[in-house]
Computed example of a mutant assay.
Amino acid sequence: MADELQLEPVEKGGSKKKLVIIIVAAVVLLLIIGGGVAWFLMSGDKDKAADGAKTEQTDGKDGEKGAAPKPGEEALYVALPNPFTFNVPGNRGSRVVQINAQVMVRGATDEDLAKKNLPLIESVLLQTFSQFTEEQLATSQGRESLRTTSQEAVRDALTKVAGKPVVERVLITGFVMQ
């Protein structure tokens, strides 16, 4: 019976080597995957930025209506300090309208010109706004007509005073009719 119970010791060193090899392989695989993901994300952002720069540069041509602004001529907004409150005639009597507006200019020099001529801009806008009736202001087409008419009037008035239109757009930022 003693011959049958003879046990041989098992070597444990082989399994430790396998475990170390598996861990090293997993770390290397994670580094490769992480590097690939980082490269993909970083190269994608550069391509998008380059495409945006190409689009911005090639969209504008001199003399073209709606051309992209020249470098250094960013859009600046000059808020008119007080809302315009006035009466408009309508079928059921007059109604009170309140409009908040801002003007968009290009560059710091036009911003300064707009701020210097703010009383003129406010006067022209109030005159233009009060020419419209309740029926015209009740529709979205009428409000768009109000914006374009006031924009043309402001540009004309500033051209006479400052020698150039200064204002690119008149923006109506608030409109209430009661």
Rank of each mutant, 00 (worst) to 15 (best):
A157L: 09
G63F: 01
G44K: 11
V161Q: 15
Q6P: 01
G163W: 05
G52H: 07
K116H: 07
L80W: 00
K65I: 08
E122P: 04
G163H: 11
L41E: 14
R169H: 12
D3N: 08
I22E: 13
V10M: 07
E73Y: 07
T58L: 14
P83S: 09
G36V: 06
S43T: 15
G60M: 06
L41D: 13
G174F: 01
N91H: 05
F40V: 09
S130E: 14
P9N: 08
F40Q: 14
I21E: 11
V96I: 14
V20K: 14
G107Q: 12
N117A: 09
A162P: 08
E74N: 06
F175V: 06
Y77K: 14
P83F: 00
V166I: 13
F86N: 06
L118V: 05
V124A: 06
T159Q: 15
Y77M: 13
Q102T: 05
D3R: 08
G63P: 02
S145M: 13
V10E: 06
F175L: 11
M1C: 07
T58G: 00
V103S: 05
G66Y: 10
V97Y: 03
K65G: 02
F86P: 03
S140Q: 15
L146K: 07
A108H: 09
E135C: 00
G142F: 00
K164V: 08
S43P: 02
A157V: 07
I121E: 12
S130W: 01
A49P: 02
N82Q: 12
V154L: 09
L41Q: 14
T149E: 13
K160D: 15
A67G: 06
A157T: 12
A26T: 07
V20L: 14
R95V: 04
K164E: 15
K12I: 10
A75D: 15
Q141R: 10
V176I: 13
K160M: 11
T109I: 05
T128P: 06
G174V: 01
I33R: 05
E4T: 02
T173P: 03
D110W: 03
P9I: 03
M177W: 02
V28R: 08
G60H: 05
I33T: 08
E111V: 00
A138H: 02
K17H: 04
A53S: 09
T139C: 10
F175Q: 10
S150V: 03
K61F: 01
S145H: 08
A53M: 13
I121M: 11
G13W: 00
L80S: 04
P81F: 00
Q57R: 05
L125V: 01
T139F: 03
G52E: 14
F40M: 12
A25M: 08
N82H: 08
E134Y: 12
E64M: 10
K12F: 00
Q131L: 09
T133C: 06
S150I: 04
L146Y: 02
A26G: 12
A153D: 11
L7N: 06
I23K: 07
W39G: 05
G35C: 03
R147D: 05
L126I: 01
L76E: 06
A67D: 08
A162N: 14
G35E: 10
A114V: 05
T85I: 10
K46D: 07
S145P: 02
G63M: 06
L19G: 02
S150P: 08
K46W: 01
K54L: 09
